[in-house]
Design a protein around this nucleic acid. Structure first.
Lengths: 227, 227
DNA sequence: ACCATTGCCACACCATTGTATGGGCCGGAC
DNA sequence: GTCCGGCCCATACAATGGTGTGGCAATGGT
């Protein structure tokens, strides 16, 4: 069988390793590589129904889970496997809750990666088995996450550039479209995100990244008793 | 002896607990409380030479280590003890490298806190003893961190408000000064940070928070099999 | 006492941002 | 087919953002 796989992975070495794993795990797969979120978007526009997307978190152009949220938001039918160097239980659970079909830690061995890919291609879920997915399975997406998933591809690109500090003028030049159009996109993005300035937009995006790092002082009162 | 201590801590319960610890650890200390970075700044302007500052990370008005950086930048002689719910080794080492005189995890018992305070008042350093500070002791501050330390108190306040998405006009109203003055501050801040827009300024600030969470692929186990 | 430095402030001026309105071109869904 | 929605573009306008210039007061070194 011929499978089309999109590999969205920043690090060239690891991308090559994934290539090898795919060649061995599948029969003559057709692999498209993407090293940025923009490239991933391009690949999904060429073929909106790949059999699988391997997605690294923390790619250039994305922040935290925003890349995953975008893909599952725009292409709900496409199975996405998250590949990440971070393998906290919280990160894994979050990825699955946001619609990923699986999670493969970068520390996995080649054999593990191969079997994971084969399983997922056949419609299974796949996660490291030392993770307990049962508890708290029913988390919801936060506000901002749902909103990001409603952005159109172009809007998502523009938002990414805004959150890199670029001016409307620069974005227009980079995308080869007029500044007037950029402004139109920007206004649309603000409406969807519920903010009123580009500064607030990048602040909203930061929230995304911090949410995973859990923690802290939710309700932990001081452990003090005293004399 | 009369000691003047500033307690900068957001959570009221914990602030009260620290009060108790201070009363017991020291002889009739004079304690000033601050629940925001702005309040801490005010306290430091009233008395620029307190004997000790207890500083919680993640206070309203600060982001990550920016509060610590500001205090040590503007008041290098004042000993600062960081108090935090996060007690990762990386966070602790970072705090010390940025000029903190000690680190007290929020999970510490009352006795530990008392002895820590007593030690630091006497000029010692104090860190949890399960942390190995020897390795990599000579880290340097990153670009952005050094820059933040050069901000004036007012500039620091303004930067904090910018990174909360406020307009110049709103900031002016909040600080009871004219918008023109805010703009002057903003321009000065940008120069010091090396950025050209408020958006880039908040992006620069995010870098600060992410730097600690590094660690990436230190996992070499291939511990997986599958679903 | 003098000067240099630094923070604070205000006015004038230009650049950027954000919105509204209106239009044209597609491709997919009904 | 028609309708809808994304994408593109333009004009005009109001608001906000950012800089240059200069003035004032306080500080600290000489």
């Amino acid at each position: 069988m011929e499978n089309h796989i999109i590999v969205a992975e920043d690090h060239p070495l690891f991308r090559a390793a994934l290539q090898t794993a795919l060649q061995q795990a599948l029969n003559t797969p057709e692999v498209t590589e993407a090293d940025t979120i923009a490239a991933l978007q391009g690949a999904l526009e060429s073929d909106a129904n790949p059999d699988l997307v391997l997605l690294d978190l923390n790619m250039p152009g994305a922040h935290g889970f925003s890349g995953l949220l975008y893909v599952v938001g725009q292409h709900p039918k496409v199975p996405v496997v998250v590949i990440s160097a971070q393998d906290d239980e919280a990160v894994i659970r979050k990825a699955i809750n946001y619609g990923a079909s699986g999670f493969i830690p970068k520390s996995s061995s080649m054999d593990v990666i191969k079997s994971a890919i084969q399983g997922i291609i056949n419609g299974e879920k796949w996660i490291p088995d030392n993770v307990d997915m049962s508890k708290e399975a029913g988390q919801e997406k936060s506000e901002i996450e749902e909103k990001i998933a409603t952005l159109t591809p172009q809007q998502f690109r523009v938002l990414g550039m805004i959150s890199e500090g670029m001016l409307n003028k620069q974005i227009a030049w980079e995308l080869n479209i007029s500044e007037a159009t950029i402004k139109a996109h920007v206004t649309a993005i603000f409406r969807k995100l519920g903010v009123r300035s580009r500064t607030q937009a990048v602040i909203a995006l930061q929230q995304l990244e911090l949410e995973g790092s859990d923690n802290s002082q939710n309700n932990q009162q001081p452990p003090i008793s005293n004399s």
